[in-house]
Write a protein that binds this DNA or RNA. Structure first.
Lengths: 246, 246
DNA sequence: CGCCCATTTGACAGCTTTCAAATCGCGTGG
DNA sequence: CCACGCGATTTGAAAGCTGTCAAATGGGCG
């Protein structure tokens, strides 16, 4: 799983192969994509709203988040990303960015030119389908986030976020046991859940005192997984982490 | 534009061709997709959360909406769809539905088998790309909805929804002038914006008295387009209605 | 050791929700 | 053509979750 990478793009292949079966030939072609590595410091902007884009980044290490800023200056985080995630397919294919992508931690990216990606897709239908599917899963997660901020209270929203990040780190092979990286400040948790940092703080205190989670220096330990899922009205189906369809 | 359809699937072609240029050959292949027509009455379920799916519907006439229901029984509407929209690519490709799709009005659908769709995509890279792009635009709209329910107040949320539905109806050739179909009850507007129907009612009264919009029998007239956009913090970029990238 | 950012805490205001109950609108049947 | 019935829209009053605005405390890094 987390074996040493013979190739920079291995995390992307692992991710795609999780949901779509790819032949050796497809896999090789994918790993042979031209790309360059790129490093970003924490809080650096990777993509800015409005940028025109002609390349696409694959996250090799670290965490990033997407966000938008309203006319009133409020920020809403749209998603959190980790190793293997394809960071800006959206912006790349649609021509310009409709949101920001920013580093949450130090980050390593592989940057792939759009033209190479499209050529690969044209020549390998299975790969095209894998990318498409990845986009569909992203969309599914966005839908769940709409539900989260639209119809859940503060406690549920935060618990739900904990559950999602935990399962996705497990799927990416980034953790062992119920202890996970937690690269967000309370203010960022608020921006992800549509709450203020003050309210996040108070709600988190409640969750800790109930023995659901414990936190310390950018890490979180889920003390009561069942309880946390219940508290967050969490059901993992929307993550589509298994290969259901043909 | 809204010329008589020689073919049932014409609305889908129109939609895709809006964002991706397709050759005559591609277009013909698309229109030749095997499909059957299907009718649904208002409020009928088209897809249920958890259903396994092996076909995909294209909306030919009428309005539908996606929604999820929380463990507590609250409903959150995720998107509204109209002529030309591809209704359940998501569910079809991912194998099972992670949300419900329900008719808002009487609805005509063209149902296409998944296998035929995948075959077409494998043979026509441009079409595969067009579908992929359509999925990316859907995702962009979901992202904007996260912002809407997460960081805007009641007035902004509702105004934003009016703006979106108006522009999309224009793009689909469904209206002339500032008068639009409005197939939702106030309760459904609440479910789409994360509010209660009571609060939607009071907020709408305010907007009407300010001269932003007028409503009557499932229709809405936007009296002050600029004012409504301002009130809704609305910016159309996220709809990606033009063909920006190559 | 000291600075800076993140976390906490307090008091209070406010937007939204709740829970009914009253009206309205309109398709249906007499 | 008018009465009936049911869903949608309105209205009221009160409660509540979350936001606001500072200010204090804590922790990590240079």
């Amino acid at each position: 799983m987390s074996a040493p990478h013979r190739n920079s793009l291995q995390p992307m292949l692992d991710r795609l192969a999780q949901r779509t079966s790819l032949s050796d030939q497809d896999s090789d072609a994918l790993l042979s994509l031209p790309h360059r590595r790129s490093h970003f410091d924490a809080s650096a902007y990777i993509v800015r709203d409005g940028d025109s884009a002609d390349s696409c980044g694959v996250l090799l290490d670290g965490f990033v988040y997407r966000h938008k800023v309203t006319g009133g200056g409020a920020r809403q985080i749209l998603s959190i990303h980790m190793r293997g995630d394809i960071v800006d397919l959206q912006n790349s294919l649609l021509g310009y960015a409709d949101h920001n992508v920013q580093a949450l931690t130090q980050v390593e990216l592989a940057i792939i030119p759009r033209s190479a990606l499209l050529k690969l897709c044209a020549e390998h239908a299975a790969i095209a389908q894998a990318f498409w599917r990845d986009t569909l899963v992203d969309a599914s997660i966005f839908r769940e986030w709409i539900v989260n901020v639209g119809r859940r209270d503060a406690r549920q929203r935060i618990a739900h976020l904990f559950c999602e990040i935990a399962l996705r780190q497990e799927a990416a092979g980034l953790c062992e046991g119920p202890n996970y990286a937690w690269p967000m400040t309370q203010e960022q948790v608020g921006d992800a859940t549509g709450l203020t940092s003050v309210h996040v703080n108070r709600t988190l205190q409640g969750m800790r005192s109930e023995g659901l989670v414990t936190t310390s220096k950018r890490r979180v330990t889920i003390a009561d997984w069942t309880g946390l899922q219940t508290a967050g009205d969490f059901s993992r189906a929307y993550l589509h982490q298994t290969r259901e369809a043909a």
